[in-house]
Amino acid sequence: MEKHYYNPPQLPNWEKAFSQVVVVKSEEMQTIYLSGQVSVDRENKLIGEGDLKCQATQAFKNLQVALASVGATTMDVVKINIYVKDYRSADAGVVSEAFQSAFPFEKLPASTWLGVQALALEGLLIEIDAIAVVAVHPTIKHT
């Protein structure tokens, strides 16, 4: 088993605090662990202050960037956790719309949505983490 740690350059560099992506490889598969993605740009500037819809859209985009950095897509996600600050039932439609845009599939990952009192940075309204699994393809050797 191998572990690889990644901090894609398209996302904020928080490597002193955590890795954005950790890939655990075995002979047949790799499991991809994605740290919580929030609504910030690569310079760690908040996008969509006070706007849950905008923040949800950006957080899902960042999740897709994190997946793509290791050759995966949302189709590979098997578990997703969504944390919404001060969650109210009226927020469900907004979050669901952003979720469906990133996951337009019939078979969806297991999912947990939680309302939380606060997130790591002031102004954040949503955070999304995920686990993905992909098959390891044997390397083709050229002679």
Score class of each variant (00 low, 15 high):
Met1Lys: 15
Met1Ile: 09
Glu2Trp: 15
Lys3Ile: 03
His4Trp: 12
Tyr6Pro: 00
Tyr6His: 02
Tyr6Val: 00
Asn7Trp: 04
Pro8Lys: 11
Pro9Lys: 09
Pro9Phe: 08
Gln10Thr: 04
Gln10Cys: 07
Leu11Cys: 04
Pro12Phe: 09
Asn13Met: 03
Trp14Asn: 05
Glu15Met: 03
Ser19Gly: 01
Ser19Trp: 06
Gln20Gly: 04
Val23Trp: 02
Val23Asp: 03
Val24Thr: 13
Lys25Val: 09
Ser26Met: 10
Thr31Met: 12
Ile32Asp: 11
Ser35Glu: 05
Gln37Glu: 14
Val38Pro: 12
Ser39Glu: 14
Ser39Leu: 13
Ser39Gly: 13
Asp41Trp: 15
Asn44Tyr: 15
Asn44Ala: 11
Lys45Tyr: 10
Lys45Ile: 10
Glu49Gln: 14
Asp51Ile: 09
Lys53Pro: 08
Gln55Ala: 15
Gln55Glu: 12
Gln58Arg: 15
Gln58His: 15
Phe60Arg: 06
Phe60Pro: 12
Lys61Asn: 13
Lys61Gln: 12
Leu63His: 06
Gln64Thr: 01
Val65Leu: 13
Ala68Gln: 10
Ser69Leu: 12
Gly71Asp: 04
Ala72His: 03
Ala72Trp: 06
Thr74His: 08
Thr74Leu: 02
Val77Tyr: 10
Tyr83Trp: 09
Val84Ala: 08
Val84Tyr: 05
Ser89Lys: 11
Ser89Val: 07
Ala90Gln: 12
Asp91Tyr: 04
Asp91Leu: 02
Asp91Glu: 06
Ala92Thr: 01
Ala92Ile: 02
Val94His: 07
Val94Arg: 07
Val94Ile: 13
Val94Gln: 09
Val95Met: 13
Ser96Asn: 10
Glu97Asp: 05
Ala98Leu: 06
Ala98Trp: 07
Phe99Arg: 08
Gln100Ala: 00
Ala102Ile: 11
Phe103Val: 08
Phe103Lys: 08
Pro104Trp: 10
Phe105Asn: 02
Glu106Pro: 00
Leu108Asp: 02
Pro109Asp: 04
Ala110Asn: 13
Thr112Val: 09
Gly115Thr: 00
Val116Pro: 00
Val116Ala: 07
Gln117Tyr: 00
Gln117Thr: 09
Leu121Asn: 04
Leu124Ile: 08
Leu124Gly: 14
Leu125Asn: 03
Ile126Met: 13
Glu127Ala: 08
Asp129Val: 09
Ala130Phe: 12
Ala132Ile: 03
Val133Tyr: 04
Val133Phe: 09
Val136Gln: 14
His137Asn: 10
His137Ile: 12
Ile140Lys: 15
Ile140Leu: 11
Lys141Pro: 05
